[in-house]
């Protein structure tokens, strides 16, 4: 496995693929211990980790059933995806971190989303926390390394946390090819170099069999028709 700390904070540009990366990372970690995903997304009402949860009535999407079978618990506001979608996580976060071997925190996009981390700074000690920055070369606003680095600086400023690694999640949804991913490597390496942190891994849809992908993922967060 990748050498990871107990708490992994996933940040990045709005729409870079943080939730899908978080979900895959949690499934990977579930092979080594108990895992919680915390949906700390206060920005986005759709396509978020809370969608991977079963409802109180026991209705589960395929992805949600998969997670519960693997023993990954999903911590999200009980109001998530409702009309009263307010960031009300409170004590559940602290509890999940204390009782799980690993906790993946899926943060909302940009510096706006990263603000929510400030609330939990006292438990996110540098010794036990990694903060990874997810980048996608094909996403508007972060197509150039400098744009991605500017946003990273904003995220670090508001969150009070320092980035400890870059995750290259460059893709074009269903139009991604192995070449799409390969073309993004110099971009991701440049961001890691400039930020002074390692490129933790490059993701890619498992089905593409791209040789430059060292963390193959399943596409768990997607529209219903894909």
């Amino acid at each position: 496995m990748i050498n990871l700390k107990k708490i992994i904070v996933i940040t990045g540009h709005y729409g870079s693929g943080k939730t899908n990366v978080s979900a895959n990372l949690a499934l990977h970690l579930a092979e080594f211990g108990s895992v919680s995903i915390i949906d700390l997304d206060v920005v986005n009402p759709y396509f978020r980790a809370a969608d991977l949860r079963c409802t109180a009535e026991g209705d589960c999407s395929d992805a949600a059933r998969f997670f519960s079978e693997k023993g990954v618990s999903i911590v999200a506001s009980k109001y998530a995806n409702s009309s009263l979608d307010i960031p009300a996580l409170g004590f559940a976060v602290t509890g999940a971190i204390k009782t799980s071997d690993y906790t993946v925190i899926d943060v909302g996009g940009d510096d706006e989303g990263a603000k929510a981390l400030g609330r939990y700074l006292d438990i996110l000690s540098p010794e036990q926390t990694d903060m990874f920055y997810v980048v996608n070369m094909y996403r508007y606003h972060t197509q150039k390394p400098q744009e991605a680095l500017d946003l990273l600086r904003d995220i670090e400023t508001v969150s009070g946390l320092k980035c400890t690694g870059i995750i290259n999640n460059s893709h074009l949804c269903t139009q991604t090819t192995p070449e799409t991913i390969t073309a993004s490597l110099p971009y991701a390496e440049e961001i890691a170099k400039q930020a002074g942190v390692p490129l933790v891994f490059t993701t890619g849809n498992r089905e593409l069999n791209c040789k430059n992908v060292n963390f193959p993922i399943d596409i768990l967060v997607k529209p219903i028709w894909v």
């Binding site: 996608n136 094909y138 996403r139 508007y140």
Partner: peptide, 14 residues
Amino acid sequence: EKILMKGNEACAEA
């Protein structure tokens, strides 16, 4: 050139 955008962002940029 293709870029990834949300439908809302794509509408605004267009």
